[in-house]
Design a protein around this nucleic acid. Structure first.
Lengths: 208, 208
DNA sequence: TAACATAAGTTAGCGCTCATAACATTCCAA
DNA sequence: TTGGAATGTTATGAGCGCTAACTTATGTTA
């Protein structure tokens, strides 16, 4: 078992080599998994080190600090989100009402499935927000929403400003995602059906 | 100066008395202020102890652990929020569209002014969510929204389920508050006018 | 009034974190 | 072949939450 694991990791006969090979990537992968599982607040770089089999000082040869690791994780998470979102749109119909609803649902679904990552992506963490990779990936993600709304407006002769409408839709699904994963609905309105709420509210919010 | 402070705190000639008087309340007040200022993640019980002038072990005579202090803080913050919300409704008109819009704006305003508290109140923190005081205070807060919607529906002959509509409105303003304080709007749509967005969206979401 | 139980403080210490400094090893290129 | 540069190591510091064991003050009861 441990033998096949060794082979899978590409180490032909790697008995405790001093240099890891690609420690940076290994630490990012381990950290990504740990954050996705336990959340950023319960993630320690030290754990990632143990997983990668190196000392707790090793990361500092590759990263500025703990926050730089989180930065990279967030950027990757945005990529994953963008992919899933586009897949949903493509399936439901580009530039259609159903497509836009599907995007909203995909947003919430991502938030539920990747709770811990979602919180890190959108939560307040000053250092992360300024990071180049985070800003550009986040912006790209949002642009695709505006695009879908623009096509829909065009098709259906709606007059509104696509960006303004996109912000409105984003606001709603983000609220839904947040209240859902933070279990605020559960306390106050456990019976709420999110999927239905989104399909109900989307056309209302698209109105001019 | 220090003399008048002593008198104000009720200590007639209190030079370093071994027993504090009301350490529990003093720690809660100090902690509330620190959390409001720095956020729960950057708050240490140790800091609150220094502020209160006691050892770092002292709190454990009064609280189960750090989380119990946060629990109490959240409960108090909900009270403050409920007060401000009701004040806004009363001023704008009970059971009117303006009243409902005012509540939404008050929600966002509270979130902005008390960012750190807001995050603690609605963020994911399993131990806190289950706490009795938090659940009951949160529920009471939400009930007042349902009430306003119900009156409005009655008056204007709207057919919808008040709770369902209240959830929809809450979802929207919560999304707005979150994206605003976490600076996600700032990255992607810095020009957005939240006040206007809320007054635009509220009537749309009230529709059946 | 004296004695004592208990409440409410203290110090010391464990185990964990992030981060830095100083040292060791390995790799690669001149 | 050899000397940096890159990439590991160990040791350490400062801060955190929390517990154990001890001390001091308080207030009730005999």
């Amino acid at each position: 078992m441990s033998k096949s694991a060794d082979e899978a990791s590409g180490a032909v006969h790697a008995k405790a080599k001093y240099h890891h090979g690609d420690l940076k990537e290994a630490l990012v992968l381990a950290s990504y998994a740990l954050v996705a599982e336990r959340g950023a607040e319960n993630f320690s770089l030290a754990d990632a080190c143990r997983e990668a089999g190196v000392s707790t000082a090793a990361p500092y040869k590759h990263f500025r600090d703990r926050d730089e690791v989180l930065e990279i994780i967030v950027a990757r998470a945005f990529d994953v989100m963008a992919d899933r979102s586009m897949a949903a749109v493509t399936e439901a119909g580009v530039g259609t009402l159903d497509g836009i609803i599907a995007m909203g649902r995909a947003y919430v679904q991502f938030a539920v499935e990747e709770q811990r990552l979602f919180r890190l992506m959108f939560g307040q963490h000053p250092k992360l927000k300024q990071a180049e990779r985070v800003v550009s990936d986040g912006t790209r993600c949002f642009s695709s929403v505006i695009e879908q709304v623009a096509i829909y407006c065009d098709k259906s002769g709606l007059e509104g400003n696509p960006k303004e409408i996109a912000v409105r839709l984003w606001t709603f699904v983000h609220g839904a995602a947040s209240l859902l994963i933070d279990e605020d609905y559960a306390i106050v309105a456990p019976e709420v059906d999110i999927e239905k709420m989104i399909s109900d509210a989307t056309p209302l919010l698209l109105a001019r």
